[in-house]
Nucleic acid binder design. Structure first.
Lengths: 344, 344
DNA sequence: TTGTACGCGTTATCAA
DNA sequence: TTGATAACGCGTACAA
């Protein structure tokens, strides 16, 4: 039984109702163009048989499927999973199904999925952050597309929605300055668009507060963070960095702006293990407001991304595009805010 | 432009190659039944035009889609997201696409998705934990189905894969006993199959170590845990529970088996805030080995679920079912293990 | 108000 | 080795 049978088709319903398939279709889709009796009859048979139109056949006929593809680099990442959740919810409300594709940041897999989605006649695409380096050579189908959190290289024409990372970097740094610390950036080795923007915000804040550019210190962590596995190498490296910062400190306490919460938490733990006072001697602001930031002690001050808004704007844009409308704004930045907790 | 155009169809390729659509199909799908020249010709045209078969049309013709549906209650839950990741990977390797559906534990939405998946002619279904109470009245399509982590009520015939929660409860409790504590269970108000099994394991361990059944203490937390939002009420309630336990203690230190990591971390933090020594005065074992368990301080001892194995068995079973084979084992329990860290 | 006929793009069967 | 033809299930002109 490798091949399935459609339980009940429109012809079955037609036969059982004593009408033609066309009439059944009219009753179910148009809502007009038939007598009251016929309508009742057909609906009755539909209810009895549990008939449901075959979406594949319908899609082939009308050349659209009522589904949108959602491509995500790593579903186990809390931020991405939240975006997925909200996007899915928005689209469901608009009667779209969502095909979620997890690429594992693998460009080949991403390509494969994009092709498959195209062949499945999805009506539109939401691309959450493509593969970092190779996204140049990703072949994107000719469809309504909205990119979230990262643009696809080469196509400035596609619409794009992301958090205002630069504002986030500014807010984090300003907080550290307000607390009387000398702010430093702790970030990952790999330079993504969003982390660059966060660092740009850091520089902006220095400038705005009259701190000389030469005082800017950006410390890059080499060790990989790893999705599922926590890297012990990361622990060690961050620990050494914290020790160095503390040793080199002047009279002003140290302020660390970590460009993500994982780094921030690592830094907090490293400081605590050395008996350094938080936030008196050592203040930290993270980024993302991930789950761990609230559950860790002391709770982490961090930049919060407005995921529901992000998803909402992305979906609204996509729906407009799918309807054939043009967009007023091709690029949207969603405001972020500081969640000030116990590390500043 | 609400309707799309297929860029290039099999007829286009046929015309450009000077053969019939049937021959193109043979070249692409069968690999035999044509001359060498024809094969080259067709493949050349395919490469030039970038033709890709329309999956919808093919699905309609062969009555299968090469996709499987994956229904998950909450994608932002780390355990579920890991299952999704691994299931998706396994299926991708077998050339299946995966449609991931996030139900938000909403029975109505689950039903809606099941119907839609059916109508999209998915070849099989993986159901990760259904809606708790209402799963009785979920209408499951007549398809190959594998349930993960929770059975659907009423249908003992469906195949089922989950972690050995009972073993987990046993291991956690045995650890607490071995450390010389009097073990207690801290769990949520709602009784799911898996948490019941975990508690059963707790009882087994008591019995096996000669601790009278009357000493079993199961404390249920009323406050909701909430997916995205952390509940302050939960904090307070757990804090009160910890205080009570500590006040009532006899000479033996307190051992808490929390049936999930969130509860465990709450308990740890509550104890720390009261200055209670961990693990000397207060030992804790969680369940799930979630992300927070490793990043929290002190790192949490917890029961680890073997998600890759879980996904692998589930997919292997589904693939067999989809091939029309029968399964030797309808119910599989995947072993768990204790990750002993700093809270025991 | 209703039915007939066609086509969406493919693959499978049959005959050449 | 190849091509014409039919069929998967549906929606929709068009005719009645």
């Amino acid at each position: 039984m490798s091949h399935r049978q459609q339980a009940v088709t429109i012809s079955d319903v037609a036969r059982l109702s004593g009408v033609s398939p066309a009439t059944v279709s009219r009753v179910l889709n148009d809502g007009i163009g038939f007598s009251e009796d016929t309508g009742r009859m057909v609906l009755d048979v539909v209810a009895r048989t549990g008939y449901q139109a075959n979406g594949i056949a319908r899609a082939l006929r009308v050349l659209k499927s009522g589904t949108v593809g959602l491509v995500v680099p790593d579903i186990t990442n809390y931020f991405f999973s939240q975006v997925v959740e909200h996007v899915e919810r928005e689209l469901f409300a608009e009667r779209y199904s969502t095909i979620i594709c997890n690429t594992g940041r693998d460009a080949e897999k991403e390509n494969s999925y994009l092709k498959k989605l195209d062949s499945k006649m999805v009506d539109g695409l939401i691309l959450i952050s493509g593969n970092p380096s190779t996204s140049q050579d990703v072949e994107v189908p000719n469809l309504p597309i909205v990119c979230v959190d990262r643009e696809i290289a080469g196509s400035e024409s596609t619409t794009f929605v992301s958090s205002d990372h630069e504002q986030g970097g500014y807010l984090a740094t300003a907080e550290l300055i307000a607390k009387g610390t000398r702010p430093v950036v702790l970030t990952t080795a790999y330079e993504s668009t969003s982390s660059s923007a966060r660092i740009a915000g850091y520089r902006n804040a220095l400038r705005a507060h009259g701190i000389p550019e030469s005082d800017a210190r950006i410390i890059r962590v080499q060790a990989a963070e790893g999705g599922t596995n926590v890297s012990a190498a990361l622990d060690d490296e961050v620990s050494a960095i914290v020790a160095n910062l503390y040793a080199e400190r002047t009279e002003a306490p140290i302020g660390v702006f970590a460009t993500n919460d994982t780094l921030a938490v690592n830094a907090v733990n490293a400081a605590l293990q050395r008996g350094i006072q938080i936030p008196q001697e050592f203040a930290i602001v993270g980024f993302d407001d991930s789950l761990i930031s609230r559950v860790v002690h002391p709770p982490l001050s961090t930049i919060h991304q407005d995921v529901p808004k992000l998803a909402q704007v992305a979906c609204a844009n996509l729906i407009k595009l799918m309807a054939g409308d043009d967009l007023l704004e091709k690029r949207t930045r969603i405001p972020v805010w500081l969640e000030s907790r116990a590390t500043t």
